[in-house]
Amino acid sequence: MKKLCIVVPCYNEEEALAYTNTELTGMLKKLTEKGKVKKDSFILYVDDGSRDHTWERIQGFRKEYECVFGLKLARNTGHQNALTAGLLTALDFADMMISIDADLQDDISVIEEMIDQFEQGNDIVYGVRNRRDTDTFFKKYTALGFYKLMQAMKIDIVYNHADYRLMSKRAVEQFSGYTERNLFLRGIIPLIGYRSAIVKYDRKSRIAGESKYSLNKMFSMAFEGITSFSIQPIRMITRLGLAIVVCSILAAVYAFISFITGKVVAGWTSIILSIWFIGGVQLLSVGLIGIYIGKIYIEVKHRPRYNIEINNLMEKPHEES
């Protein structure tokens, strides 16, 4: 029997937290009564610099529930950094960690199955959606397109998996060695290479509050994943540049033959379109290379990914039961 920590990153989730805490503490109690986890298993809420009363809610839960703890980051650092902060903080206190979003759209009833898979020797258990019935038409097909694009870019990623997963202590220890600042956990976790399993579930509708993943953030995450794990875009532009050079040579040969045969046709349209096209490709290429250079610039400075302001886990030691 192992000690479990449920890591819950939160950003402006004051409306949803009451329901979330009731459900998670209830689930933790059931798991304890069934002998699935140790009695001192706990929930760790990570406040990612929320601007509402999220931290006050977490502090209220801390006073009411012995199994609830909070981690407050000094400023908003983004979902991936907040989740990382929770996992690395819980590393010294738990044998396995489950990450789940605060809106609880991911079905917590499969947590027991995740633990069973862990007991069977799997260090990582991915929560994977059965279907996307709750998504809008646009979100459904853009998400499917995202996974297909990631696969085309040769990025190892679990299809229809977000950040709902169980990780063993040793898996999180290995993850702690991935120190890059451009975080994309869906791509990093499979790189660990330990034995893994999949648990499928149906995603539910959000109970309260609003989704923090706007269209802009979803596209940003997709672009972050592609540029952090693959140089395929640069290779594609190189191939495009080569194709344009070949076309230019063919056009030059055609122009020379036309000049020799006296079939020269004056016209500016084709010239202008060619200039615009090549100019656009050049700007796109320079911009993409600039993004990669910018990522290198961020990495080499080695700035902290987050700063912890308050850590409730340090209030008292967690003794092994």
Rank of each mutant, 00 (worst) to 15 (best):
T84L: 15
T84F: 03
T84S: 12
A85T: 03
L87M: 14
L87S: 02
T89M: 01
A90M: 02
L91R: 10
A94G: 06
D95P: 06
M97P: 03
D101N: 15
A102D: 15
L104M: 14
D107S: 13
D107M: 11
D107A: 03
I108K: 13
I108Q: 03
I111S: 00
I111K: 00
I111M: 15
E112Y: 03
Q117C: 10
Q117S: 09
F118C: 07
Q120K: 15
Q120S: 15
G121P: 09
G121I: 04
N122D: 11
N122W: 13
N122Y: 13
V125L: 09
Y126G: 02
V128W: 04
N130Q: 11
R131I: 02
D133C: 02
T134P: 01
T134N: 11
T136H: 04
T136D: 07
F137C: 00
F137A: 09
F138I: 03
F138Q: 06
K140T: 07
K140W: 05
Y141C: 01
L144C: 01
G145N: 04
F146T: 05
Y147G: 04
Y147K: 05
M150V: 01
M150P: 01
A152K: 08
M153H: 12
D156H: 09
D156T: 13
D156Y: 04
V158L: 05
Y159P: 02
Y159K: 08
H161C: 08
A162N: 08
D163N: 14
D163V: 13
R165V: 12
K169N: 13
A171G: 06
E173Y: 06
E173C: 01
S176L: 04
T179K: 15
T179Q: 14
E180H: 13
E180N: 14
N182T: 08
L183M: 09
F184D: 04
L185T: 02
L185D: 03
L185I: 12
G187C: 04
I188N: 02
I189F: 11
I189R: 04
I189K: 05
P190M: 09
P190E: 10
I192D: 03
I192M: 04
S196A: 13
A197D: 05
I198D: 14
K200I: 00
K200V: 01
Y201F: 15
D202A: 10
D202H: 11
D202K: 10
R203V: 12
R203E: 15
K204M: 10
K204G: 02
S205T: 06
S205D: 11
R206E: 05
R206W: 02
I207K: 14
I207H: 14
A208K: 15
G209M: 07
E210A: 14
E210G: 04
E210I: 10
S211W: 08
S211E: 13
K212Q: 07
K212V: 12
Y213D: 03
S214R: 07
S214T: 15
K217F: 01
K217V: 07
